[in-house]
C-alpha cells in the first residue's frame, strides 16, 4: 500500500435542505489516487473542482462520506487515531495570516510540537532546524504581522515541519502571495522534498508551479481527469482547455506554433526548455 491511498473516496456536504430536494452534489466522486513516499505530487484543477476538499481529507480534517482514505495504512475514519494521521500528514492552508497563533515567529513554530507534548530541549532543536529549512531562522524573534506574505507562509510551513511529518500537504499556499513570495514558497517546498525526502502534495491552480514536480493529478468536477508526469499531462493541451484549465505559458506558446505547422518533438514546460525547443525547430 502506498503512503496515502484513497479508494473510491466520495464526499458531499450534508445539509437537510438538499437531501429533501434530493439534489446532493458530490464534491468528490469516487476518487482513487495514491501518493508514494518521497514523491512531489501536484494536484491541479480550477475553483470548485474539489481539490481543496481532497487535501482536507489527507489529514482527517474532513472524513469521507463514502469510500476510504488511508494514510500510512491508517483509516482516517478511525477517530482514535486521528492525531496519528495529523502527525504524519501536515496541512498548510491558503491564508498565512490565519494560521499563525503566536505573536513571535519561534513561538508559533513551537506550537505544533508543544501540542504533541515534546520535551522542551527537543522542541528548541526542532524549531531551529525547521526555521533553517525554510530560510527564516534570522527572523525567529520577529512578530509575524511585520513579515511579508511569502515569509509568513514559510513560517507556517516551518510550523508544520516542526511536528516532523512524513508528508506535507499544501492547499493553494501561494494563492494570496505576490510573485516573489510565490517563488520563495515553491523553492522552499521543492528543497524540503529533494533534501529531506519529505513527501509533498501541492494543491494549486497555477500551472507554472507544477513544472518541477514528479507527477500531476488533474481533478475536475470531483473526479480524476488525468494523471501522469508534467510532460504527459500538459501535452494534452486541447483536453485540458476543454475543461477550462490552463497549461504553462511555454507549452501554450509551442502548442499554438505547432498548430500553424511547426513540429516540436515534445512540448516544453519551462522557459529554458522552450528556448531549446525553439532553437532546434527554427535553427
Amino acid at each position: 500500500m502506498d503512503f496515502i491511498e484513497t479508494r473510491n473516496l466520495t464526499f458531499f456536504y450534508e445539509s437537510e435542505e438538499d437531501e429533501q430536494q434530493n439534489n446532493v452534489r458530490n464534491v468528490l466522486d469516487s476518487v482513487s489516487i495514491s501518493v508514494k513516499q518521497g514523491e512531489f505530487l501536484a494536484v491541479i484543477g480550477h475553483n470548485g473542482s474539489g481539490k481543496s476538499t481532497l487535501s482536507k481529507h489527507m489529514n482527517a480534517i474532513l472524513l469521507p462520506t463514502g469510500g476510504k482514505m488511508y494514510v500510512d495504512g491508517i483509516d482516517t475514519s478511525d477517530e482514535s487515531r486521528i492525531y496519528d494521521v495529523r502527525r504524519k500528514v501536515g496541512l498548510v492552508l491558503q491564508n498565512p495570516d490565519n494560521q499563525l497563533v503566536a505573536s513571535i515567529v519561534e513561538e508559533d513554530v513551537a506550537f505544533g510540537p508543544e501540542n504533541l507534548g515534546v520535551e522542551p530541549e527537543e522542541i528548541r532543536r526542532r524549531v531551529d532546524s525547521a526555521l533553517k529549512a525554510v530560510d527564516m531562522y534570522e527572523y525567529r524573534l520577529h512578530a509575524p504581522h511585520k513579515l511579508s506574505g511569502g515569509q509568513k507562509q514559510r513560517v507556517a510551513i516551518a510550523g508544520i515541519l516542526a511536528m516532523e511529518p512524513d508528508c506535507i500537504v499544501l492547499d493553494e499556499p501561494t494563492a494570496m502571495l505576490d510573485p516573489k513570495g510565490r517563488e520563495e514558497v515553491i523553492t522552499a517546498i521543492t528543497r524540503l522534498n529533494k533534501e529531506q525526502g519529505i513527501t509533498v502534495v501541492l494543491i494549486t491552480h497555477n500551472m507554472e508551479e507544477t513544472v518541477g514536480c514528479d507527477r500531476i493529478i488533474v481533478i475536475d468536477d470531483g473526479k480524476v481527469l488525468t494523471e501522469g508526469t508534467p510532460h504527459r499531462v500538459f501535452s494534452q493541451v486541447d483536453r485540458l482547455r476543454r475543461h477550462h484549465l490552463d497549461v504553462p505559458q511555454s507549452t501554450e506558446l509551442c502548442s499554438r506554433l505547432s498548430a500553424i505547422g511547426l513540429n516540436f518533438s515534445n512540448l516544453p514546460l519551462s522557459t529554458e526548455e522552450c528556448v531549446e525547443e525553439l532553437l532546434e525547430v527554427l535553427g
Binding site: 489529514n59 480534517i61 492525531y83 495529523r86 502527525r87 501536515g90 496541512l91 492552508l93 491564508n95 495570516d97 490565519n98 494560521q99 497563533v101 519561534e106 513561538e107 513551537a110 506550537f111 505544533g112 510540537p113 508543544e114 501540542n115 504533541l116 507534548g117 515534546v118 520535551e119 522542551p120 522542541i123 528548541r124 524549531v127 507556517a156 510550523g159 508544520i160 511536528m163
Partner: peptide, 26 residues
Amino acid sequence: RRAYELAMAMECRCYQGGSGRTRMKQ
C-alpha cells in the same frame, strides 16, 4: 471567518487543549 480558519489550522497542528501540552520556553 478568520476564527474559523484559525481553528482549523490549530487542529491541523494537533491542538487538543491544555492537557499533555509542553512548552518550549521554560
